[in-house]
Design a protein around this nucleic acid. Structure first.
Length: 586
DNA sequence: GCCGTTTTCGGCCCGACTGTTTTCAGTCG
């Protein structure tokens, strides 16, 4: 994938921010500046050198003369002198621990300077043997806290999948709702924003002032609380027994609900940006409400809508709150109407017993008819060369087409479309003949083997096949297991547009492929997308909702999501033996 | 180091909790 250079540069700036934070004093403001730029560069969707070419480096937020110079230096020489010299003067190995709970910049500094400790190993040893207690300010509790942070860090390094987190979130909600006198409870944080992986849970609740103590006690003594980390009048943190994850609870009064929900949902970057703007406008935002800076009077706080409208903004859906420009859009009342699950008219990737699914066509149709309100579905079993998935050969495909026709006759409507998830072979050929593909209503082409090569040409060739409508899980990544395979996404976008081949947002919990960033990029370029469940069982059909979350985080509207349209409209857009394609073939 | 519809200097989001202190710094989200 491209943008590798942006990531490296962003990491350098992040490290510089860490070092400045460690140095403290006035340097902590440099830390803020570099930290901000690191995030900005990481989020860029074009190579940083393009900005240099256009002389627009300093147009990037947070980039001024000094940092622009450093970026240029990096582009020219591959390194930044200032960073190299900073590294020489700081305990870099220790600084890698700065994100661990209990290991702040000042603590690390004291440990390094007073105990002459420079490596992780030495630090862990000092913690375990207790020699760290010699330091001023390091009592029993603090040392214990650091050891716990170290242990937790190892466990939390692998974040959990959104789908698992949503399930646990439901369990937490059920638990809290059963506590007497709890009036309202909602999940906030990255789960509410539907990030693809979740580190911990944020739960907001209200109760009457008089019941606060009993509610807090109910939570902390519950069997669901494996360990209580922190307990105050408004904040509680525990380790959840079922998931071994941290849950942060926040208890607020009812008239603070909106402000608290907004604050607790984040993202952090979104909130900081919002608070800065509020400050400029003469307001102060906290989790308790919006206050006038002059009179210190509270102006809003009851609902989230009120928070945004008081600032003159349109409401921003939680999925969009990542400080990627949504605040600017909201100020102009230009927040797009993002896609909703209810907008979808069909599921375009479903597997049956005919390859590696576990249900028959009939079971699937019956289930969908009683649980979804789709206008159509597409059956897309695997093709022959994917042996491990019991892929279908030409004969079996033709038989399946007949079975589907029979099913539609029974239903009295063309509800089931015949499709396939066809293998893109190593050289970009497909493993099923055009002649057979031409008989299908919908062809999704995917890569499942031979990842270790540049797959750009391979995918472009599949796009150019006149019978391919869609590229399935275009980057092949498996969250936490496998990196995306190598493709030049800009070129894939170009081919997709040129050939009217759509790209899939696959809703499998560990795929979510395209991801939010790439889906956003694709929509921006004018590429059409589809959202599919890629289901292999009846329960899997709900995965399509995870795909919708990705699309929402990518700001996708109905206009970009093809399966929000009727089948007739889909046919109109895609090549479908259309004139567009025949000219390409000729 | 960045940034400015009151600023080219003097700020940089805001508040809760903990631990170690006697009034607050460090850390966290």
């Amino acid at each position: 994938m491209t943008l590798e250079r942006n990531r490296t540069l962003s990491q350098i700036f992040k490290n510089m921010a860490t070092i400045y934070k460690y140095r403290g004093g006035d340097d902590r403001f440099k830390s803020i500046a570099y930290g901000k730029v690191a995030k900005v560069i990481n989020a860029l969707q074009e190579d940083i050198s393009e900005y240099k070419k256009n002389n627009s480096l300093e147009d990037l937020p947070g980039v001024g003369e000094g940092i622009a110079q450093k970026i240029e230096e990096y582009l020219k020489t591959g390194k930044i002198e200032k960073y190299e010299s900073l590294k020489k003067s700081s305990p870099n190995e220790l600084l890698e621990m700065i994100d661990i709970t209990g290991f702040g910049a000042q603590s690390l500094k004291q440990i390094h300077e007073d105990l002459n400790i420079s490596t992780k190993k030495e630090l862990v040893k000092a913690l375990q043997e207790g020699s760290i207690r010699k330091l001023k300010g390091f009592g029993d509790k603090k040392v214990e806290n650091m050891l716990r942070g170290l242990k937790l860090h190892k466990e939390i390094e692998d974040r959990m999948l959104l789908s698992d987190a949503l399930e646990i979130g439901e369990q937490i909600l059920k638990w809290i709702k059963e506590i007497p006198n709890v009036k309202k409870v909602e999940l906030a944080g990255s789960l509410r924003r539907k990030k693809e992986t979740i580190g911990d849970f944020d739960v907001l609740l209200t109760c009457d002032e008089k019941d606060r103590k009993s509610v807090i006690d109910s939570i902390t003594i519950s069997a669901f609380a494996k360990k209580v980390i922190l307990k105050g009048n408004t904040k509680i943190s525990i380790i959840h027994k079922n998931s071994d994850r941290q849950i942060d609870f926040r208890i607020v009064n009812e008239d603070e609900w909106g402000a608290a929900l907004q604050y607790f949902t984040g993202s952090k970057e979104h909130n900081i940006h919002l608070r800065k703007i509020a400050k400029d406008k003469g307001y102060k935002i906290s989790e308790y409400g919006i206050y006038s800076t002059d009179t210190e009077k509270k102006i809003a706080g009851k609902t989230e809508e009120e928070i945004y409208s008081t600032l003159g903004f349109q409401f921003i859906p939680p999925e969009m709150r990542e400080d990627l420009g949504e605040i600017e859009l909201a100020s102009k009342h230009l927040i797009p109407k993002i896609i909703q699950f209810e907008d979808l008219k069909g599921d375009l990737q479903i597997h049956t017993l005919d390859s590696d699914g576990v249900n028959t066509l009939e079971e699937i149709v019956n289930h969908i008819k009683s649980h979804f309100s789709y206008e159509y579905i597409v059956i897309t079993d695997h093709s022959k060369s994917l042996r491990i998935a019991n892929g279908m050969d030409e004969d079996k495909i033709l038989k399946q087409i007949e079975a589907i026709q029979l099913m539609n006759k029974k239903l009295g409507e063309e509800f089931v479309k015949s499709g396939i998830e066809v293998e893109i072979l190593k050289n970009g050929d497909l493993d099923i003949s055009d002649q057979v593909l031409s008989k299908l209503d919908w062809v999704t082409a995917s890569i499942h083997t031979n990842f270790n090569q540049d797959n750009t040409e391979r995918i472009i060739r599949a796009c150019e096949n006149p019978f391919v409508h869609c590229i399935g899980h275009p980057t092949g990544r498996l969250i936490g297991e496998r990196e995306p395979y190598e493709i030049n996404f800009e070129k894939v976008i170009e081919a997709s547009k040129r050939t009217k081949t759509v790209l899939e947002i696959n809703g499998q919990p560990n795929r979510l492929d395209l991801n939010d960033k790439l889906a956003m990029l694709a929509q921006k370029a004018g590429v059409k997308l589809v959202i599919s469940s890629d289901s292999h069982s009846l329960a899997n059909l709900n995965y399509i909702k995870l795909g919708v979350f990705v699309a929402q985080r990518a700001w996708c509207t109905k206009e970009s999501i093809l399966n929000s349209k009727s089948w007739a409209e889909i046919k109109k857009f895609t090549k479908f033996h259309s004139k567009v394609m025949s000219t390409i073939i000729l």
